[in-house]
Write a protein that binds this DNA or RNA. Structure first.
Lengths: 332, 332
DNA sequence: TCTAATTTGTGCGTATGTATG
DNA sequence: GCATACATACGCACAAATTAG
């Protein structure tokens, strides 16, 4: 295989494709400072392009100080400092408050010369698939939050696997990819266990769980917990029209349901954190002060954003479990 | 046989026949993503139509994201999703909680066959400018939130003015454009006036105003109010290290400062809504329940999203002042 | 390095049919 | 019947990008 490749990217001019394939070879360490580039004529013959096309590519690199030419000898790499402008494809499920932290810490750690484009699939497989197919080859890195969509591997495998990072929810079929994920099953189990003493004040756990939005691991972890510690429990998919009763603890991943419960409790005389409890999911600033503080099981979205930025810049192959913690406040 | 055929359908305009024959070729798999379309001139010669006719057909496909053009090379199929009838370019300032309502009601009213791409300029003029220049001609409608960036007209005037809507903050230089805006100066004045009886319980107004993020009209409206009703006042740019004192009312556009004030008040014995007051800006769900309810001056973001969707589908030329209201809760 | 061919991008002028009031 | 606006269609000219020889 040669260093240069042309016609991977249909839209780009040929000379730019030559430039970027050489830049890539340098950044991957295939060619190093002092190495000779293939001659102009050899590239012309091998790829069937005009001599001028190769020349304009080399001139581009030369004007930027990446290569130097020596008459009668050839072109040589003179600097490995290529400022490849990176573009990152960031595919979220939906827009919501706690992505603010993730996104802004991601951008802060990334440099200014990296462009990030955001997309949302809204839990719609066809849209998910279209967004990825339409953008194959256009980005230097793909960050994908598959949420609980199934069969995403069928789409994702069309991307270069060294340029993909799976975010938040991990699926078996995607095991081979770089990922920053939450281990929902163990996290909810361990964090409930961590709050066991406080939960024991109550006698009944209500999990507000929607199959469409929440990951299945959450449910499994919850069920493990109630079985192991022999709690009475109930699973409901919405808190609409639900009025809390004494001795109940609500575990609420979705903020709309959180508000429903708190508002409907205004009718009762129950005191939150004494007569009934709430454990929320995904911490946001406002939860620090709502009703004196809402207890939350939450991953550290700032940390997730920072680590993601490091992955994008360093292109390591790793699977990172993002830390998750129980933040105890007055609602429990 | 060529890909394009004209005069099968005598009723339809020629450019639309070209569009649909290309769509048909894509859906039949005759041309695929990455393939080059016949050149404009070749279609003109082959079918004896004007160059302009072919061009308007290609522009239609381009604005829908089906094809992309590369100057000097040709038109290339970039997406096989031919059911997308419109693509909308949506440029926000930053990602934050209340945009959730705006965005989701916008999408709900828009049909399924309209694709929306979101971008953020982060109050950075160079980024703002680059994002627009990079996407000229690629969308059928441009929704732009200039925030308080200056000289945006220099960039925006390069877009077709009938395909642009200015969102939220209006500037004099952008007066000619379709817009859904807030009249910050009058809204803050009128809403403070509406809450006058409650504000009168206190004797000093503190406005937490940052020039970088908040629109200048807000400050003007506030100053009009304190002058007309002879309130003592103070303007600070951050609530960091600020501890509320008795008799103060805080007007707080930014949620981080809101939280700072509420948290720092835990040190004091002051009761919110009696000893000191808070008026927040931009209502979100959680403000209904924070500290028993935070009073907010807020525009109706759901309404804004709905009206925006109507504008995009009907392409009317209007300037709409989005309704704004004082939502009185216990914090005042 | 120069010239040429091809292609897109843009602007201007003109003409025709259709819908609207 | 008349005036106006709009979409459609055509022709021409020139600029800029790409590629080839």
């Amino acid at each position: 295989m040669g260093i240069v490749s042309i016609n991977k990217d249909f839209g780009a001019p040929k000379y730019k494709q030559i430039v970027s394939s050489i830049e890539e070879a340098i950044s991957n360490g295939i060619i190093k400072k002092g190495d000779r580039l293939p001659s102009i004529n050899s590239i012309r013959d091998k790829h069937g392009v005009s001599r001028d096309t190769v020349l304009s590519a080399f001139n581009d690199l030369k004007s930027r100080g990446v290569v130097q030419s020596v008459a009668g000898k050839g072109y040589f790499v003179s600097s490995e400092a290529i400022h490849v402008k990176q573009k990152v494809f960031l595919l979220f499920d939906e827009l919501n408050a706690f992505k603010e932290d993730l996104y802004s810490s991601f951008l802060n750690v990334l440099g200014d010369n990296i462009q990030v484009d955001i997309f949302f699939h809204h839990f719609n497989y066809k849209l998910f698939s279209k967004l990825i197919y339409d953008n194959i080859g256009d980005y230097s890195y793909y960050v994908i939050m598959p949420a609980n969509l199934k069969d995403t591997y069928q789409v994702i495998r069309n991307l270069p696997s060294d340029k993909v990072c799976i975010l938040d929810q991990m699926h078996q079929e995607l095991e081979g990819y770089t990922a920053i994920y939450q281990d929902f099953e163990n996290d909810i189990f361990n964090n409930l266990k961590k709050g066991l003493d406080l939960i024991k004040k109550y006698n009944r756990l209500i999990f507000v769980f929607s199959e469409d939005k929440q990951p299945p691991g959450m449910l499994l972890g919850f069920l493990n917990f109630v079985k192991q510690f022999k709690f009475e429990y109930e699973i409901i998919d919405s808190a609409r029209n639900r009025v809390p009763e004494s001795g109940e603890v609500y575990i609420i991943p979705d903020d709309r349901n959180l508000i429903r419960i708190i508002k409907s409790n205004k009718q009762t005389k129950l005191k939150l954190g004494r007569d009934f409890g709430i454990i929320s999911y995904n911490d946001t600033m406002l939860k620090e002060i709502v009703e004196g503080g809402i207890t939350a099981i939450s991953t550290d979205f700032n940390k997730m954003g920072e680590q993601l930025a490091e992955l994008v810049t360093n292109k390591e192959y790793v699977q990172i479990k993002n830390p998750n913690d129980l933040i105890i406040r007055k609602s429990l």
